[in-house]
Amino acid sequence: MLLVLPALLVLGAVLFYPIGLAIYSGFFDIGMMNLGNPRFVGWENYRKMANTPAFWQSVRVTVIYTIGVVVGSYIVGLLCALLLNRPFRGRALARTLIIIPWAIPNVVTVLIWNWMLDANYGVVNYLLQTFHLISENLRWRAMPDLAQISVTGVTVWTTYPVALVMLLAGLQAIPRDLYEAASVDGATAWQRFWHITWPGLAPVNIVLILLLSLMAFTRVVTIIYLMTAGGPAGATETLPIQTYLQAFKFFRMGYASAVGTVVLVIAVLFSIVYLYVTSRVYQQD
């Protein structure tokens, strides 16, 4: 037990105590002026939240963004994993290149994409015009719809390697002879995918989809914050972004803690329900 003690002390100091303090702070009015002397307000922050349209707007943005990121990363990751799941020359190199976005720090990712999506000189506008997909330059980060698409797309660019790596490991765990047997029986590629690959990926899918959801829902904040800071007009203001802006832009630390606590509670409840449902489904198979 002596071995675990240092870890417990550190986690107590940087995780358990702060989480407790954060949840506790949600019941106080804390601003920059009265940091040392917070005022207890009970459920007032939560009541205010429920009556604020900006909060519900943020809930909607968060749900759309999370679904977009999970679906996008999963599809891109699966397509790439299927491409890489057969021997060919240069496979190791191809895999390294395809997961490179993973190694690039989020702050840099945002800088690159801000530049590529620049309204006047961005290469994305240029390429889209070259292929006649758009007729004039788009202001990617300034229009609400386009900003949502942009932040979702850039997030997918950083998260699909996680999906790829896990799915590739899952694909390689599926026994080869199943495919050979199916080929002998004259199964089409689609049938092989649907009856062998897809069920074979089930254990990976369960973990991966939860992981991606939690990442998009609570963790990927840097990308949105540095691309749009939640704008324009709150179009990309997910709940974690709202938490940060309330705390450090408007200095409503108590209210921000309450918003953040709601995120945490939703994430915990979602995970419990999700794991419960998937374990039931999984056991039936």
């Binding site: 986690l11 105590y17 702070s25 804390i30 939690l214 963790r219 709940l239 972004i241 938490t243 995120v263």
Partner: peptide
Amino acid sequence: LTGLFGVVILITQMLPATLLVIPMFIIFRN
């Protein structure tokens, strides 16, 4: 403790960094 740690790992995956940074800021300032 072993099982508890599994739960802790999962919780850190659910914890918004922007929530954790608020108490951190208060503690660090104090």
